[in-house]
Nucleic acid binder design. Structure first.
Ligand code: FES
Ligand code: FES
Lengths: 139, 139
DNA sequence: TATAATTCCTATCTTTTTTATAGGATTAAT
DNA sequence: ATTAATCCTATAAAAAAGATAGGAATTATA
């Protein structure tokens, strides 16, 4: 299951997408509107920033904005930044690969291919730009 | 990510599938061969049994065997028995539905449909009978 | 230039989940 | 009887998730 952190992060990204104003949005404003614990959100925003998903403006009247065009941002990117791999087992992850401690050999592993297929399908959907979500929701 | 418990459970199920002998297989034998902590495996087997995935024979020379034909068992069933929902968010789970505390309204939720689609694809693959895994592995 | 609003940083705490173990009661084959 | 096993309840240990605390640094603006 998605962590709360990831879900908060997604809501934050979508909130910023909805407010492409000239002025940046403060963490406080996001926390209030999306009901996210303020200090927790600060941590999330720092992670989002370090992953180049949001940018920040410091000081009074400062805040956050998307770091790139929404057409270049996907839910998968946010999930990876917060929770790590999309894949359900580490040995098939593209970006977070680790060998499976429990399995003797990847080549002969009985479940590896199955989970690889699962990952491929998940990524295909989750990599869609967030700009496609509005349409999705209206279907 | 898949929990160790679920992974151990899958290995157990596949091990039992490979040993359709007349005699049941003891937890000790499985633990030794699959390198699963014995007492942890006992718990797992109890869960697998309560979900009708394995059956047991008590007493000396007792042990475990699959509760049904392998063609009727899927990785999805094992995952659900161990870790709960396949879905990444609770509001789209068929068997473990819960409303999302963080979302105001399911109908207007921007990510619900996307994750629903993800779930559908995951389930389609993970529901395949374990008898198809051997072929998978040889591809 | 003082103030207020804000990001930034490090650290800690609390709760929940995961992983694993302990000890013994019960069952059944030999 | 003995032994090898399942079965059951409980607990412990470790890790992860979720949340909070306190304050330093930055910047607009009054
Ligand atoms: S699941 Fe990764 S090698 Fe088997
Ligand atoms: S994700 Fe479940 S209602 Fe929004």
């Amino acid at each position: 299951m998605l962590s709360k952190k990831a879900k908060y992060a997604i809501k934050t990204i979508l909130f910023l997408q909805d407010h492409p104003e000239l002025v940046p949005i403060s963490a406080k404003a996001i926390a209030d509107r999306e009901h996210i614990p303020y200090k927790f959100l600060e941590n999330i925003l720092r992670d989002l920033k370090s992953h180049q998903l949001v940018k920040s403006i410091r000081g009074a009247e400062g805040g956050y904005a998307l770091a790139k065009d929404p057409s270049q941002i996907s839910i998968a990117q946010v999930m990876r930044a917060m929770d790590g791999p999309i894949a359900l087992i580490p040995c098939i992850s593209e970006r977070f690969y680790e060998s499976c401690a429990e399995c003797e050999d990847e080549e002969t592993c009985r479940i590896r291919r199955l989970f690889s297929e699962v990952r491929t399908e998940m990524v295909e959907i989750l990599e869609r730009p967030i700009t496609t979500l509005a349409q999705e929701a209206k279907k």
